[in-house]
Design a protein around this nucleic acid. Structure first.
Length: 194
DNA sequence: TATAAGATTTACT
DNA sequence: GTAAATCTTATAT
């Protein structure tokens, strides 16, 4: 049974709400014939041309950022520091570079596969950062600009009780250059009640 | 054309 | 706690 999120979720205009609602959803990848999935625990919203922290601030349109201008429901995979891939979800309509950065997940299926991809580390800290997450799930540049409605990378709804989840907010990470925008509470973090 | 800095992680001191 | 790895983009020659 598929509970895959579709355009009615991704194409809404409020990227901050989408970022918050993605917490607790299930991120799945089916890459190189291997299935992995995990609960999304940490996201950040990037609000296109008006957000100084976004690559697309001021309507910058380059080979790298053009993916953010695609319609909602598209993946945006970006190579950071020349070393790590960061996975984003493009939202809203074509021509509006809104995106949600997936910063962390809690591994669910394919944990052994993730460990192997990450070099045999223990499950703790397997995918608790944007670069680690992408590596654990097999995401690389070949997953850039693909549809999240297809069968390679997608997000499913879950049965988690949203009301009961503890979601904390705070300023985004690693964007001190964004001046007055750096303190916006657009980072969402799921803290499970163990 | 060349240089600097970034939505990070890892290893070493 | 500090530094290195190493690709893309923006700014300066």
């Amino acid at each position: 049974m598929s509970r895959k999120l579709d355009n009615s979720f991704y194409k809404r205009p409020d990227v901050v709400s989408i970022a918050k609602e993605l917490i607790g959803k299930k991120l799945c990848t089916h890459i190189d014939g291997l299935l992995t999935s995990g609960f999304i625990t940490e996201t950040e919203a990037y609000a296109g041309v008006t957000d100084k922290a976004s690559h697309a601030y001021g309507d910058r349109f380059t080979d790298r950022t053009k993916t953010m201008y695609l319609p909602g429901g598209t993946s945006y995979v970006y190579l950071c520091y020349g070393v790590h891939y960061l996975f984003n979800v493009v939202t809203h309509l074509e021509g509006t570079p809104h995106a949600v950065l997936i910063r962390g997940i809690r591994p669910l299926e394919g944990i052994e596969i993730m460990q192997e991809r990450r070099g045999g580390k223990n499950p703790k800290g397997l995918a608790d950062g944007p670069g680690k997450l992408s590596k654990a799930m097999g995401i690389s540049k070949s997953q850039n600009a693909i549809s999240l409605l297809a069968d390679e990378v997608w997000i499913e709804a879950t049965d988690i009780e949203v009301e009961g989840m503890h979601i904390s907010t705070g300023p985004r990470i690693g964007i001190d250059y964004a001046e007055e925008h750096k303190d916006l509470p657009w980072r969402f973090l799921w803290e499970p009640t163990q």
